[in-house]
């Protein structure tokens, strides 16, 4: 038995230790790894009616991946421009949402983490309570705000800033706002957690040595908060790239999110292998992007768990 396992069992007792291990294994292997492997398997098979599954035609193929790049065979275009566009736009938009969220949440997390007093609890509660409301309802609430005859347009035209209502939905503002808002907590809390443990004296020491506020953040607070920032960014990026409800409800009619394509293939076209291939491409690309970003910002995998 490896040493860490023995230590783990000694620390928690053999019975409870085994239960915990079993649950974690079930969670990761049974609920995550195996289903994903089965999706991976699907993605390499042709779309066959159930009777032919396992038959002679059921062989591994790259067809589904080719489709994403080249489109239907004999199609009019050399590349599957529509799907590829959606794919890259989704990734770029997810990156933008992540950056926007970081810029928005870092000051909030800093304030929450470094200020003392009871009002901090109230503020945290006010951040959490809206999340008691169902995600879809929240998305529709944003629709009411951003709609053509919505609250925002009524105010803006009423104030004379716009002559005609601005279509926030068609221009995707509503979508970005919705995605940003949906994952605010996942950005704030990891950063807040880390910043809360930052000794306030360090900030004062930097100030005392002559540092202006931005340099204090750049040299003292942000390096310290890096694990929290990276874990927040990872979650927000992954979840917005994989979001479905917000794009369905808040997206303009012409702007598809890549997850919507996947959804259509699974559901509308009943083409599971094609959907699986798209999902695998999205997953792998997102993981690679995250790993690349971690490398760029010199973050260790262990820091993410902090």
């Amino acid at each position: 038995m490896p040493r860490f396992l023995k230590d783990f069992l000694n620390r928690n007792g053999t019975g409870p230790g085994l239960v915990m291990l079993g649950l974690v294994l079930f969670w990761t292997v049974g609920l995550i790894i195996l289903p994903q492997l089965s999706m991976l398997d699907f993605s390499f098979r042709p779309n066959l009616p159930p009777p032919e599954m396992g038959g002679p035609k059921d062989v591994y193929t790259l067809e589904n991946y080719k489709y994403l790049v080249y489109g239907p065979e004999g199609g009019s275009q050399a590349y599957n421009a529509v799907d590829l566009m959606v794919f890259f736009r989704t990734l770029v938009a997810a990156v933008c949402v992540t950056v926007f969220n970081l810029v928005l949440c870092y000051p909030i997390a800093y304030y929450l983490g470094q200020t003392k007093g009871n009002h901090i609890r109230v503020l945290a509660l006010m951040l959490i309570i809206p999340y008691w409301i169902n995600e879809i309802l929240r998305a529709f609430a944003l629709r009411i705000i951003f709609g053509e005859t919505g609250v925002l347009n009524t105010i803006l035209t009423g104030a004379g800033l716009f002559d005609t209502p601005f279509d926030f939905i068609r221009n995707d503002y509503a979508l970005y706002a919705g995605l940003g808002y949906a994952y605010i907590l996942l950005m704030i809390f990891p950063i807040y957690n880390v910043i809360e443990s930052l000794d306030h004296n360090q900030i004062e020491a930097a100030r005392d040595l002559g540092a202006p506020w931005w340099r204090i953040h750049w040299r003292v607070v942000i390096p310290y908060a890096k694990p929290g920032i990276s874990s927040g960014c990872t979650m927000v990026f992954m979840l917005s790239a994989g979001a479905l409800a917000a794009p369905q409800i808040l997206g303009g009619p012409s702007s598809l999110w890549f997850t919507q394509l996947i959804y259509q293939q699974f559901n509308d076209s009943s083409d599971w292998p094609q959907g699986a291939a798209y999902a695998v491409v999205l997953l792998v690309t997102c993981v690679l992007l995250v790993l690349g970003a971690m490398r760029l910002f010199k973050v260790n995998m262990g820091d993410i768990g902090k």
């Binding site: 000794d199 004062e204 020491a205 930097a206």
Partner: peptide
């Protein structure tokens, strides 16, 4: 320049 009770060196 102030020297803090806990020194407040920058750990990173």
């Amino acid at each position: 320049a102030l020297i803090f009770q806990n020194l407040a060196l920058f750990p990173l």
